[in-house]
């Protein structure tokens, strides 16, 4: 479910990142208020735990293995806000140090796996477990449902992010620029894999881990309940703000047109009713030495002008490669050779 860079457009990534910023800020504040100085070590350990859980190979009935996320379990034992921070850190380590999951797609990945997954898993668990005893079977049943629903919601979100790409971004001739599958294909494909394998794996693993904890160390299951960071006034405000953002985000996705500030003189005229004087005089004065990468007197026919493009591109590339090499030579001089 880790979306690598390249599948989502930078615009989508920016929107997802913008949605996650207030979530992180709120989560940091909530958990800090409850855990005080315990906050940093607990979250860091939670992140390390999640990272290691993601490496586990879980045996599935057909004899092969699958991976679990472990986010549902973390949300159940630590609460959803704390789980959000821990999973975010684990995903950051994976993206930065192991190249697993994109750097630009970090906002989208955390939206799916650090926000939707723990929150939906936690509330499903709460709904089923209620105020039952720590040893009650409602606890692990809640874990089973929570893990299953959490992973499927996260996968659905990923599928929607994929599926929006061909609708919003494609070349003039219809070729896809990012993920090529529309919603009608992305959603069923992801749903099939997650409803049938990844979801059950996550649910069963969460349930079995809760049963293990019930038998060996039931106290750990009530850690979250005794220090629930969910009460408080700012909670409602945050939810309202989040709701607004979620409602507004499709606008950002759907917005089309020229990039802000990159208008040509004609577009400026259409927008403002006139061309600013300085701009028109600059536009006239500024004649690039190679206008549109073409040589003067060379743009007579398509073949000639495309040859000029190719030659300019190759020269440009050559210069870039050479400068890169010069940098490495300078670098070698300034740093003493240790090998």
């Amino acid at each position: 479910m880790h979306i690598p860079d390249g599948y989502l457009s930078p615009q989508t990534c920016a929107v997802m990142g913008a949605v996650m910023l207030p979530v992180w800020a709120a989560a940091a504040k909530k958990v800090n208020n409850v855990q005080k100085t315990k906050y940093a070590p607990l979250m860091a350990i939670g992140a390390a735990f999640t990272f290691v859980i993601m490496m586990f190979n879980i045996p599935v009935p057909d004899g092969t293995t699958a991976h679990a996320v472990g986010g549902g379990l973390l949300a159940i034992v630590l609460g959803p806000w704390a789980a959000c921070i821990s999973i975010t850190i684990a995903l950051a380590v994976q993206a930065l140090l192991f190249g697993d999951g994109g750097i630009l797609a970090f906002g989208a990945n955390t939206f799916n796996m650090a926000l939707l997954l723990p929150f939906s898993a936690y509330y499903t668990y709460r709904l089923i477990a209620g105020n039952s005893e720590a040893a009650s079977s409602r606890r692990w049943l809640g874990g089973l449902a929570g893990g299953y629903i959490g992973v499927n919601l996260a996968a659905l979100a990923a599928a929607v992010e994929f599926g929006l790409q061909p609708v919003l971004f494609h070349a003039a001739d219809g070729a896809a620029l990012y993920c090529p599958y529309p919603l009608s294909m992305a959603v069923p494909a992801m749903a099939l894999a997650h409803l049938s394998i990844a979801g059950p794996v996550e649910g069963v693993i969460t349930a079995l881990a809760i049963r293990y904890l019930q038998e060996r160390n039931a106290g750990i299951l009530s850690v979250e309940a005794s220090s629930s960071p969910l009460e408080g006034h700012s909670y409602k405000k945050l939810m309202r703000g989040l709701g607004m953002l979620i409602l507004l985000s499709p606008l950002g996705l759907l917005a089309k047109g020229t990039a802000w500030g990159e208008w040509a003189a004609g577009e400026i005229e259409a927008k403002m009713g006139f061309i600013p004087g300085g701009m028109s005089s600059l536009a006239e004065r500024w004649q690039a030495p190679l206008p549109d990468y073409g040589l003067p007197g060379f743009e007579h026919n398509l073949l000639q002008s495309s040859t000029v493009y190719i030659v300019s591109a190759i020269i440009g590339l050559g210069i870039i490669f050479a400068i890169t090499y010069i940098f490495s030579l300078v670098q070698k001089k300034t740093t003493p050779d240790k090998t």
Binding site: T37, K38, P41, L42, A44, I45, G46, A48, F49, V52, I53, F56, I58, P59, V60, P61, G63, G70, L73, V77, V204, I205, A207, L208, A209, I210, R211, Y212, L213, R216, N217, I220, V223
Partner: peptide, 28 residues
């Protein structure tokens, strides 16, 4: 059996969380 293996994996996860939680207290 696959079921036994899954129980072992989830047991390891539970045991790891026990250790991790105690450790976070000690680090704190």
């Amino acid at each position: 059996s696959t079921q036994e293996q899954r129980c072992f994996v989830s047991g390891s996860i539970g045991a790891l969380w026990n250790k991790a939680y105690i450790l976070s207290g000690e680090i704190h």
